[in-house]
């Protein structure tokens, strides 16, 4: 997962304010939060920053596809093994006799399902990482063999 520091180090770090933020660090935070995009940093458009700009764009690419909650599923990496389906505590709570036991989900309240060999996430607002009593849950990230799920 990309960090603010990684983004910051690729910026010109002159605090020129051309992007509208007061510092480059603030701009990095805004980019990570998807409030600003790379193109708004005009000095980066100059030729000598070409490499940094490309790197930034590639780092931020997944963010562009993120759901509201920040979860990104990379279907091209997913093997459809179903580990996340069975391990997610929300799926266990909402479907104890289906997904919780390793079987196919029996209702639509689960977060993860596997369709055409790849995982499909829905009901993401139920994820424990969000809402009032949020916790830093890793139960879908850790069991994934290929790093197909990340949070940004």
């Amino acid at each position: 997962m990309v960090t603010v520091m990684e983004l910051y180090q690729l910026l010109p770090r002159t605090n020129c304010k051309k992007c509208g933020e007061s510092t480059c660090m603030a701009f990095a935070v805004a980019m990570l939060g998807r409030k600003k995009n790379v193109a708004e940093c005009t000095p980066l458009l100059e030729a000598n920053f070409k490499k940094q700009k490309e790197k930034l764009e590639s780092l931020l690419l997944p963010v562009a596809g993120a759901e509201e909650t920040g979860m990104i599923v990379h279907p091209e990496l997913c093997t459809g093994c179903g580990n996340c389906v069975v391990a997610c505590p929300v799926d266990v709570a909402n479907d104890p006799h289906g997904a919780g036991m390793g079987c196919a989900p029996t209702n639509d309240k689960v977060i993860f399902k596997v369709v055409d060999g790849k995982v499909l996430a829905s009901n993401i607002k139920e994820c424990r990482r969000f809402g009032k009593n949020k916790v830093l849950c890793y139960a879908c990230i850790d069991p994934c063999p290929t790093g197909a799920i990340e949070f940004v």
């Binding site: 093997t79 459809g80 196919a104 596997v114 369709v115 060999g117 790849k118």
Partner: peptide
């Protein structure tokens, strides 16, 4: 048209 619950290998 659509396959649910099979892994990538099974779907193929």
């Amino acid at each position: 048209k659509e396959i649910k619950n099979a892994c990538r290998r099974g779907a193929a």
